[in-house]
Design a protein around this nucleic acid. Structure first.
Length: 203
DNA sequence: TGAATGATGCGCT
DNA sequence: GCGCATCATTCAT
């Protein structure tokens, strides 16, 4: 691996406080070696979901189930779930085994394989193809079949590449009814791929 | 440009 | 039944 070239993120990257991981994920590149080709994208928006006690919006808030068990496992794995009857969401498991926490990938900018992305007829702007957690998984073809994948493997992983200085904006999380007091959403202010520009106010 | 709403299925109470 | 870490469409301003 050449100095300054792409570096695959190893398990120690994920094995840290979830807030730090979330912030550091902005500007990183997600790579998926899909059956039909290599896809990659630059991460521009994420949210942290942390533990059973202090975060009522975390899927683990009411204990371990078959759905969320990957969150309770070791860091550096993909947690994928099905939501609203038609969408999937991708998370990166953080912290340590036994402590359920993860970072939700909310939006990214296409880099490689843009012509291979699953694209709805209604979406005309390529920079908006990955602008939302459900849109990202649909475009990449990620489903529960990929739940539990090891992010240090070769199918699905993250890379550090040279990137510009990022202006980070921090707000409450999108689409939740409880836990809005936590400002655990982070996004790149200068990206056209951010899902929701408006800040959610604490209600 | 923004608010309201229907689609659609799964997991929990 | 109800709520859900969503999205595209429709309608109002």
């Amino acid at each position: 691996m050449s100095r300054g070239g792409p570096r695959k993120l190893n398990r120690s990257f994920y094995e840290r406080a979830t807030i730090e991981v979330a912030r550091d994920l902005l500007g990183k590149v997600i790579v998926y070696n899909a059956p039909h080709g290599r896809l990659s994208a630059r991460i521009v928006e994420v949210e942290a979901y942390i533990g059973q006690k202090s975060d009522p919006a975390c899927h683990a808030a009411r204990g371990k189930t078959s759905r969320n068990e990957v969150m309770f496992g070791p860091p550096g794995h993909a947690y994928l779930y099905f939501i609203y009857g038609m969408y999937h969401c991708l998370n990166f498991v953080t912290e340590r085994a036994g402590f359920p926490a993860a970072v939700l990938l909310r939006a990214a900018e296409p880099i490689e394989g843009e012509s291979l992305l699953v694209r709805p007829k209604s979406e005309k702007k390529p920079e908006r193809l990955l602008a939302g957690p459900g849109k990202f998984c649909r475009a990449f073809g990620l489903t529960r079949d990929q739940n539990g994948l090891d992010l240090t493997g070769d199918h699905l992983y993250l890379e550090h590449r040279f990137d510009r200085k990022i202006a980070v904006e921090q707000t409450s999380r999108i689409g939740i009814s409880k836990g809005k007091d936590h400002l655990w959403r982070f996004f790149d202010r200068d990206s056209a791929a951010v899902s929701v520009r408006r800040n959610q106010l604490i209600s």
